[in-house]
Amino acid sequence: MQTLIWILVFLTTFCLMEFMAWFTHKYVMHGFLWSLHRDHHHKDHGSWWERNDFFFIFYALVSIGCFLLWRYEDVWIGLPIGLGIFAYGMTYFMVHDIFIHQRFKIFRDANNWYSKGLRRAHKIHHKHLEKEEGECFGMLLPPIKFFKTK
């Protein structure tokens, strides 16, 4: 029974991170921390690293904090929450940074209905180069309208 609860907490955390990513993107990245996110929309730098990558570091620290609570303070829920945040972060990195933005040149030939929908939704977001009017979608589950087969 305990294992089932841990798995449930992990899956709930993973799913809640989709909301957190949307919320953070809409109200923080396109809000008061636009100065860090701007270089993600304006490729006016020659570096692989973007100031936008600091958001990844923030969530990594939250995940590490959960692991530390579990390990040193015996807070059992810290482990499944930390793993859920970590798993979402890895998934986000694979989908957003590797698949969509091609920071590493792999998954270029993926051309199924889901990959086309993800690319289409992200392209809509990046058509706005400024802070305002940047439509925000979930990374893994953008609106169903982007998953047309035509």
Rank of each mutant, 00 (worst) to 15 (best):
S35Q: 10
H40F: 05
W6E: 15
F93P: 02
E130R: 11
K131Q: 14
G65C: 01
T12P: 08
I81Y: 03
T24D: 14
G117L: 07
F104K: 10
S115W: 07
T3L: 14
I7V: 15
I144P: 00
T24G: 13
F67G: 03
Y27L: 09
I5P: 12
L79T: 02
G31W: 08
Q102H: 15
H37Q: 06
L79F: 08
K26R: 12
R51F: 10
F56W: 12
A121G: 00
Y92T: 07
I106L: 06
R38V: 05
A21W: 15
F10T: 09
W113A: 12
W76R: 13
H41E: 04
I7Y: 09
R119I: 11
N112Q: 02
G31R: 09
S47I: 02
R71W: 15
F147P: 01
I124Q: 15
F32Q: 04
R51A: 12
H126N: 07
F147Q: 04
R108N: 14
V9Y: 11
L36I: 04
F147S: 00
G138Q: 04
L61Y: 10
L61H: 04
I144D: 00
H37Y: 05
K26I: 04
T91C: 11
G31V: 06
C136R: 01
H125F: 03
W76N: 11
M20G: 10
G84M: 05
F23V: 09
F32W: 12
F137V: 00
E132T: 03
Y59W: 15
C136V: 14
P80K: 03
H45T: 15
F23N: 13
I100T: 08
K131R: 14
R120S: 08
I81L: 03
H30V: 01
F147M: 04
V75T: 09
E130H: 13
V95G: 06
F56N: 12
D44I: 10
K105R: 13
N52C: 11
Q102I: 01
I106E: 04
A121C: 01
H40C: 06
G134S: 05
C66A: 09
H41M: 05
D44L: 12
I124C: 13
F104A: 09
L141F: 15
F146Q: 03
V28E: 02
A21C: 13
Q102K: 15
L140A: 08
I64W: 03
L118A: 02
E73P: 00
W34Q: 10
N112G: 12
F99C: 08
F93I: 01
F54M: 12
G46V: 01
K43F: 14
E50C: 10
L4Y: 13
A21S: 15
G65L: 01
L68N: 06
L8Q: 11
H122M: 00
T3V: 14
P142M: 01
F99T: 10
P80M: 02
T12G: 15
F86C: 14
G46T: 06
I81W: 00
I57F: 12
E135Y: 00
G84S: 06
W49G: 03
M90A: 13
I100C: 11
I64C: 02
T3A: 14
D53E: 12
I98L: 15
M94N: 09
T91Q: 07
E50D: 05
G46I: 01
R108E: 13
F104M: 13
F55G: 06
F99N: 09
E133H: 14
L69K: 06
H122T: 01
G89E: 10
